[in-house]
Computed example of a mutant assay.
Amino acid sequence: MARPKPATFDKQKIVAENRRARFDYAIEQTFEAGIALTGTEVKSLRSGEGSIAESYAEVTADGGVWLVNSNIPEFSHGNRFNHEPKRPRKLLLNAREINKLHGAVAREGMTLVPLTVYFNGRGRAKVELALAKGRKAHDKREHIKEREWKRDAGRIMRDHG
């Protein structure tokens, strides 16, 4: 029997975060995926540069998962072997996870959204990938009302309790 994965991932150093994703999408499930990077991309990420604000992930027909439209700027001390900043990057997942993601995206109309790029405890670059469903405008307004009510309720409980 397989050992269950921990609920939270071991995030030692967060490089990039997609804060807008939690507002625009209803997150169903999260996955931790490795990223296939070149040397200058790793150096650029270690220096704290990188953005996943407009990026998304897609499952291709050949069974791969790719991170598209993420921006890792060129390394400042890179030479002619420097990388292309917006190239698609392969995400490393188990075959079972890829099949699950492929089924959810194809059948249920869900999307794959990267939430954070970080380095784990062993120094490996990872992506927290979310299987999410897009929110409509009225869902977003409802989410804002709910969040503000929770904030107000916490404030009232703290002041009077």
Rank of each mutant, 00 (worst) to 15 (best):
A2S: 10
R3H: 08
P4D: 05
K5M: 13
K5N: 14
A7K: 13
A7T: 12
F9D: 10
F9P: 10
K11L: 01
K11T: 08
K11P: 02
Q12E: 14
Q12T: 10
K13D: 12
A16W: 07
A16T: 13
Y25R: 05
Y25S: 05
A26K: 06
A26M: 05
E28M: 07
E28S: 07
Q29D: 08
F31N: 00
F31C: 03
E32I: 00
E32P: 00
E32T: 10
E32C: 05
A33Y: 02
A33G: 06
A36M: 08
A36K: 04
L37D: 07
T38L: 05
T38C: 12
T40Q: 13
E41V: 10
V42W: 04
V42M: 07
L45G: 02
R46S: 10
G48C: 14
E49K: 15
S51I: 12
A53H: 13
S55N: 06
E58V: 01
V59I: 09
V59G: 04
T60G: 08
D62V: 07
D62M: 03
G64L: 04
G64A: 03
W66M: 11
W66E: 09
L67C: 09
L67K: 03
V68A: 05
V68Q: 11
N69G: 12
S70N: 14
N71H: 13
F75A: 12
F75Y: 15
F75Q: 14
H77P: 00
N79K: 15
R80P: 08
N82T: 14
P85C: 03
P85Y: 00
R87W: 05
P88D: 06
R89V: 05
L91C: 06
L92T: 02
L92V: 06
E97R: 01
E97L: 04
E97G: 04
E97C: 07
N99D: 15
N99E: 15
L101N: 03
H102W: 03
H102C: 06
H102D: 09
G103A: 00
A104C: 03
A104Y: 02
V105A: 02
A106F: 01
A106T: 00
R107L: 04
G109L: 01
G109Y: 00
G109N: 07
G109R: 01
M110A: 03
M110E: 06
L112V: 01
L112I: 00
P114W: 07
P114I: 01
T116M: 00
T116V: 04
N120I: 10
N120W: 11
R124G: 00
V127N: 04
E128S: 05
E128Y: 08
E128R: 07
L129V: 05
L129G: 04
A130V: 06
R135Q: 01
K136G: 01
H138G: 07
D139A: 05
K140S: 08
R141V: 06
E142N: 06
I144N: 05
E146I: 02
R147T: 12
R147D: 02
E148P: 01
E148Q: 11
W149F: 13
K150G: 13
R151A: 14
R151Y: 13
R151K: 13
A153F: 13
A153S: 14
R155T: 08
R155L: 11
I156K: 14
R158E: 13
D159S: 15
H160Y: 15
G161S: 09
